[in-house]
Design a protein around this nucleic acid. Structure first.
Lengths: 146, 146
DNA sequence: CCTGATTGGTTAACATGTTTACTATTTTAC
DNA sequence: GTAAAATAGTAAACATGTTAACCAATCAGG
């Protein structure tokens, strides 16, 4: 008998498999974002704001998987670049409400075609059915109580 | 008609869904790692080394989804902490071969029980069948040409 | 009311992520 | 054989990730 690892194969480790799959998917997206001077984080923030409208920072942090300290810094530069606006909430003065600007939306729209090409490429290789199945399972996994 | 986002729902965006699912799964693992002073990155490195034996740094970087500059720094501290050893390859002097130590393996073994508990918890909520299906799909996605 | 606990956000400090440049080897093409 | 290209890794600089400490506003219990 050879020296045997006691742990599961990393291929069957959920956190590692999720990370590796994500790296594969992100590779072409990162290329696209690089061309338009956008980091992956800023792209997620724009996507979330485009979807949710005006929301507080904690909500962005939760939806875009960022911690508040990172978000504070990133939003500061995005506001300077004119992609978002921020204002204090009238009812609860602790809250800062954030909104995407036309310029921010334009960034997403300008890259819609490229995004679709990337999605189509993956779909062509995996098949629409499997992709939907995967998205369903991921959605279910996100909802698990830990 | 209301102002409509042109992009897909972030829930059905593969990169965002993968990230969110991963955050859910990692939450309890991060708690475990925190208790033993291990970062997520060091944990992945130990897992990969435990699985592959003695390998060069580029291989670790690829398998653990780290860039070489990050790996250089992290391995420096892991070597100092006695979890890994490094040596120059005889045949190709550019290569640095890295190996997990007994102490490094011990770290993984000490947390085997906790890891299994976390896995079981997720399996209990999603079901073994769905989990296997998800891992199969992730494995397939990793192999897609981008 | 009013005090203590909670919440939303920022700041600071240090680790890691990311890009570019660089060194040292090895490989490839003549 | 030898010069150019490729490969493995490190260094430096700056952005982001992460933790802890902090402030201000709000909430909850008495």
């Amino acid at each position: 008998m050879t020296t045997q690892s006691h742990t599961k194969s990393t291929t069957r480790s959920l956190p590692i498999a999720l990370l590796r799959a994500r790296e594969t998917v992100m590779a072409p997206i990162r290329d696209m974002l690089h061309d338009i001077q956008l980091t992956e984080q800023k792209w997620r923030i724009l996507r979330v704001l485009d979807e949710l409208g005006e929301v507080e920072q904690s909500a962005i942090a939760h939806e875009a998987c960022l911690l508040l300290p990172s978000l504070t810094r990133i939003l500061r530069t995005m506001e300077a670049e004119g992609q978002i606006t921020r204002r204090q909430d009238k009812q609860d003065k602790r809250r800062t409400m954030v909104q995407i600007t036309k310029a921010g939306r334009a960034v997403l729209e300008d890259n819609l075609a490229t995004s679709l090409t990337i999605s189509s490429n993956i779909e062509a290789q995996m098949g629409r059915e499997k992709l939907d199945q995967l998205l369903d399972l991921l959605e279910e996994l996100q909802a698990v109580k830990v």
